[in-house]
């Protein structure tokens, strides 16, 4: 899933609209199809060179939850019958939009 090219840093930075930065393991961030395509060197986006993704339509609080999901997903990558992640009710709609955008 994640490309393990040696020149690539194992971490990428995700920046929310309100300026919060999250340093996330590349393999975890690539759970998202959108981010994976952003970071794919073959597509030659500026994100691929800098390793920084500006997600202008996500607020910090949503992005934090998204990042939590990235690691949750990676952790349970190979296990069967995974317990559901807890999602706060007031965040679920925004998170749903984010998830749809991120193709997660």
């Amino acid at each position: 899933m994640a490309d393990t090219n040696k020149e690539l840093s194992p971490f990428v930075t995700l920046v929310s609209a309100d300026g919060f930065e999250f340093h996330v393991r590349r393999s975890a961030a690539c759970v998202s199809g959108t981010i994976r395509r952003m970071l794919d060197v073959q597509n030659n986006f500026s994100e691929a060179q800098s390793g920084v993704c500006h997600l202008e339509n996500l607020s910090g609080i949503v992005l934090e939850k998204v990042v939590e999901y990235f690691y949750y997903n990676e952790k349970h990558h190979q296990s069967s019958s995974v317990a559901d992640m807890d999602i706060p009710a007031d965040l679920c709609l925004e998170l749903l939009m984010a998830a749809d955008y991120l193709d997660t």
């Binding site: 999901y69 949750y72 997903n73 995974v82 999602i87 009710a89 679920c92 749903l96 991120l102």
Partner: peptide
């Protein structure tokens, strides 16, 4: 194997509330 997608998580949660 593995976790449900975040979209699925959220959709279910939205349906709950």
């Amino acid at each position: 194997l593995g976790a449900k997608s975040l979209v699925e998580h959220c959709v279910r949660k939205v349906a709950d509330v």
